[in-house]
Structure formats: C-alpha cells, structure tokens
C-alpha cells in the first residue's frame, strides 16, 4: 500500500492543474454566458449568403 504515497501526490498535481485551468477559464470570461453557446452549437452556418462570402466569390 506504500504506492499511495506516490498516487496521492500525482492526484494532487492533477488537482492543481484542474484548479489552474478552471481559474483561467473564469478569468477568460468562459462562464459569463452559460446558455448561449449551448444553443449556438446547434445552428448550421453553411447557408449564410452574406456580403463577405459574395465578395470572396467575385
């Protein structure tokens, strides 16, 4: 069971990493809008005929 002295520090390092990622995500504003992206991902965007793509075709 001495392996636990190795496994637990590893899990702690992972924990530190997760905390760091989470804090970064909060700071980056990833949690500012929790509802929009869930819907946004469902929308197809390939039917758009906008000025820019038309310009690109020309």
């Amino acid at each position: 069971m001495e392996i636990i002295y190795l496994l637990i520090p590893i899990s702690l390092i992972l924990l530190g990493l997760i905390v760091w990622i989470l804090l970064w995500a909060v700071g980056d504003g990833q949690y500012d809008d929790l509802e929009g992206p869930a819907h946004r991902i469902l929308m197809d965007e390939d039917r758009i005929v906008d000025d820019k793509s038309e310009q690109a075709k020309k």
Partner: peptide, 19 residues
C-alpha cells in the same frame, strides 16, 4: 450575430445571451 457579421465593415460581433 449572423446578420451583423454579414454586413460590410463589421469586424466582430459577440452577443451574450445571459446579459
């Protein structure tokens, strides 16, 4: 977002649903 992004001259649009 799509409509505005399609306008000439609009560089970036970000709509926040929550706020």
């Amino acid at each position: 977002e799509q409509y505005l992004a399609g306008l000439r001259g609009v560089e970036q649009v970000r709509v926040n649903y929550a706020t």
